[in-house]
């Protein structure tokens, strides 16, 4: 039995660990370091209809136990992703989750329709939570009716299941999640970055050229855990959790909160081998905690009648 194998809509994962969108490009850099077939899946960089350059630099700034980024959805555009990046990724035995973004609903729909036809794309991740673009992005992810409408439109054209990436920059994440579930989403991914800012003490000016950016890294982990804990009890579609994961212990914590799989983002920048290392460490941690299979961990922090099986060493 593969203790790490996870079944999700459209996705038969050999393990529940995948690099998060925007933190792994299209895999080429990391493929120089390890075999990408080890990964459960890969969430590729957000793809838009046309190529985008993104924002001016500086695009990143460090913060306590975290970082701000304002890349601005730089990507080579749908055609190049279809013709070059996805075929290149097909050499690996790993399902691709295509993160898609746009400035208008029509753009999302057009990208979803095309990219979901790629043979190695097994699911879409609808990016309605990027805080770093002027048009689109988070604007679609902060009003439940708008998010639901977009989900419905994308679901109509997509040939693969659709996961919607939630923004933490909302008053009521449960309301948002419910609206998206009702609109037909197959799953949720959460959380995207939190809108933040840093100001240079010497110049009195924002450090990022975009002024604001998305906060990621261990600093946001407690927020992700809380939101997944709340949302997983309110919806019945599965959640791929993300937000500051650095270790196998963090993965288990996300599962306990209610996640069925997880994505690792910023930690790839600090340790490019973090994903395979976590995958290698998980079985021993499951042994230590007394679990046969990682799925037993999902929602354990709130499920009734399932006391901890941990009896100490």
């Amino acid at each position: 039995m593969n203790r790490l194998a996870v079944q999700l809509p459209g996705l038969s994962l050999k393990n529940p660990i995948m690099p998060a969108s925007g933190c792994f490009g299209f895999g080429r850099e990391y493929a120089q370091l390890y075999d990408l077939s080890q990964l459960g899946a890969i969430m590729i960089k957000a793809t838009t209809l046309e190529a985008r350059f993104g924002n001016s630099t500086p695009r990143v700034a460090e913060t306590p136990s975290g970082m701000l980024n304002a890349i601005g959805l730089q990507n080579p555009g749908l055609q190049k992703v279809m013709e070059e990046e996805l075929p290149w990724l097909a050499q690996f035995d790993v399902p691709i989750i295509a993160n898609i973004a746009g400035s208008t609903m029509e753009e999302y729909v057009e990208v979803a329709k095309e990219i979901s036809k790629a043979p190695n794309v097994y699911a879409l991740e609808l990016n309605i939570s990027c805080p770093n673009v002027k048009k689109g992005g988070m604007a679609f992810g902060t009003v439940p009716e708008v998010a639901a409408e977009l989900t419905k439109l994308v679901k109509e054209v997509s040939e693969v299941p659709v996961y919607v990436k939630l923004s933490p920059n909302v008053t009521n994440v449960v309301e948002m999640a419910r609206a998206i579930e009702a609109a037909g989403a197959d799953g949720l991914t959460m959380i995207n970055t939190l809108l933040g800012m840093r100001i240079d003490v010497k110049t009195a000016q924002p450090v990022l050229a975009n002024r604001t950016g998305g906060l990621s890294g261990p600093a946001i982990k407690p927020i992700a855990i809380r939101m997944i804990y709340e949302v997983s009890q309110a919806v019945s579609i599965p959640i791929i959790g993300m937000g500051g994961i650095q270790s196998a212990e963090d993965v288990i914590e996300f599962f306990y909160a209610g996640a069925s799989a997880v994505a690792v983002g910023t930690a790839n920048f600090i340790d490019p081998f973090v994903c395979p290392n976590i995958i290698a460490e998980l079985p021993a941690l499951l042994d230590e905690l007394g679990f046969e299979h990682i799925s037993e961990c999902t929602g354990r922090s709130w499920k009734k009648g399932e006391p901890s099986v941990y009896c100490g060493a």
Binding site: G22, C23, E29, G54, R59, A61, N69, F269, P272
Partner: peptide
Amino acid sequence: ERMGCGIGACFA
């Protein structure tokens, strides 16, 4: 330039 990953993946 300010960098994230240093290996070409993050586009910072």
